[in-house]
Simulated assay, not measured.
Amino acid sequence: MIRHLVLFKLNDGVRRDDPRVVEGVAAFRALGDLIPELRFWECEWNISDRPVAYDFAINSAVEDTDALKRYLEHPAHTAGVALWREFATWVIADYPF
């Protein structure tokens, strides 16, 4: 199994209630039901307000590197990423577990 973690930081001046953000969150929340490669899926806003904290997180798992590739290339995933590019940056980690 491979854990796929993503931490998102909203761009300066962008708020959680921005309509673009609301649409992006909805797109990512739907992925768990849309992409069969996902064995585990959760995403949520961070509750920490520490200066080093990111704003939104995805914690997911797929079976192997081939499944990860299919997930990353899935049209629903690429559409969600395109939305988030407009208002956030992110970091990722993919590791076996």
Rank of each mutant, 00 (worst) to 15 (best):
46 N>T: 04
90 W>A: 07
53 A>P: 09
59 N>R: 05
60 S>N: 03
50 R>K: 12
68 L>W: 01
84 W>P: 12
7 L>M: 11
91 V>A: 11
87 F>P: 07
93 A>W: 11
82 A>P: 06
71 Y>Q: 13
56 F>V: 01
96 P>C: 00
16 R>S: 05
79 A>D: 11
83 L>F: 08
41 W>R: 04
18 D>L: 07
80 G>H: 02
3 R>G: 11
85 R>A: 10
19 P>G: 06
85 R>D: 15
76 A>E: 14
4 H>I: 01
40 F>H: 13
35 I>T: 09
39 R>S: 09
25 V>I: 13
23 E>I: 01
34 L>H: 04
38 L>E: 03
52 V>Y: 09
97 F>S: 00
71 Y>A: 13
58 I>Y: 01
29 R>W: 04
89 T>C: 13
60 S>Y: 00
64 D>S: 03
67 A>R: 01
9 K>S: 15
17 D>L: 05
61 A>I: 07
79 A>P: 09
82 A>I: 01
84 W>Y: 02
12 D>S: 11
89 T>D: 15
24 G>Q: 05
55 D>Y: 10
12 D>I: 01
32 G>Q: 03
28 F>G: 12
18 D>K: 04
93 A>Q: 12
38 L>D: 01
94 D>T: 02
43 C>M: 05
31 L>R: 08
4 H>M: 02
36 P>A: 05
34 L>C: 08
90 W>V: 01
48 S>M: 01
61 A>T: 08
78 T>S: 13
61 A>F: 04
50 R>C: 08
13 G>R: 01
16 R>Y: 10
69 K>Y: 00
41 W>V: 12
45 W>N: 02
4 H>R: 02
81 V>L: 10
36 P>M: 02
70 R>Q: 08
5 L>K: 00
33 D>Q: 12
17 D>G: 05
44 E>I: 00
74 H>E: 10
88 A>K: 09
15 R>T: 14
61 A>Y: 02
76 A>P: 10
91 V>Q: 12
51 P>H: 04
16 R>I: 02
71 Y>T: 09
64 D>H: 04
17 D>K: 07
23 E>D: 14
44 E>F: 15
52 V>D: 15
88 A>M: 07
43 C>V: 06
4 H>W: 02
61 A>K: 04
54 Y>D: 11
65 T>R: 15
74 H>N: 12
42 E>Y: 14
66 D>E: 15
29 R>Q: 15
92 I>M: 10
76 A>K: 13
25 V>R: 07
13 G>N: 05
93 A>V: 12
